[in-house]
């Protein structure tokens, strides 16, 4: 079972590395002005592009930390078991399921990427999508907090 989990972690490392490279390339294109020089022409556009850069930088940072943690776990059998237990803990799974869990995270990631892309063309769509993500994440967090106290 641990061997299977080891392979899952290796696969995750690979996917995260691809995501980091993609985000870095997008960031580079944005900084170099590939998406148009008028993007920073007013406050709103400046904020959108700033949000996009910030999000991409955060994504790179978070995924890098995860890759380091996963690599450390892969080298240490004890840490690997702890990771496995954390991820497969049934109480956590119940709480996650009741608070929307994976589906909310999946939708949020998809909407954030849609917002980043939409931000290059229309700021109103960008703000609407971000508001939507913030709302669903807030509801999910509140539910998670409630069920963490309940169970």
């Amino acid at each position: 079972m641990m061997e299977k989990y080891r392979k899952i972690l290796q696969k995750r490392i690979l996917l995260m590395a691809i995501a980091i490279i993609s985000a870095a390339m997008l960031l580079l294109l944005q900084v170099s002005g590939f998406f148009g020089a008028d993007l920073k022409s007013d406050f709103s556009n400046g904020m959108v592009s700033g949000f996009q850069s910030g999000l991409l930088t955060a994504l790179i940072g978070v995924f890098t930390v995860f890759i380091i943690r996963y690599r450390m776990a892969l080298k240490d059998q004890m840490k690997l078991k702890l990771f496995y237990n954390q991820e497969n803990d049934e109480r956590k799974k119940v709480i996650k399921q009741k608070s929307g869990g994976n589906i909310v995270i999946f939708y949020s990631v998809v909407i954030i990427f849609a917002a980043i892309i939409a931000g290059y063309f229309n700021t109103t769509v960008f703000y609407t999508l971000i508001a939507c993500v913030l709302f669903q994440l807030s509801v999910s967090s509140l539910l998670k907090f409630y069920y963490l106290r309940k169970y």
Partner: peptide, 13 residues
Amino acid sequence: AFEVGTTRQTITS
């Protein structure tokens, strides 16, 4: 928790 494949928080609960 480690032995039975869960977390300390679950055992507490």
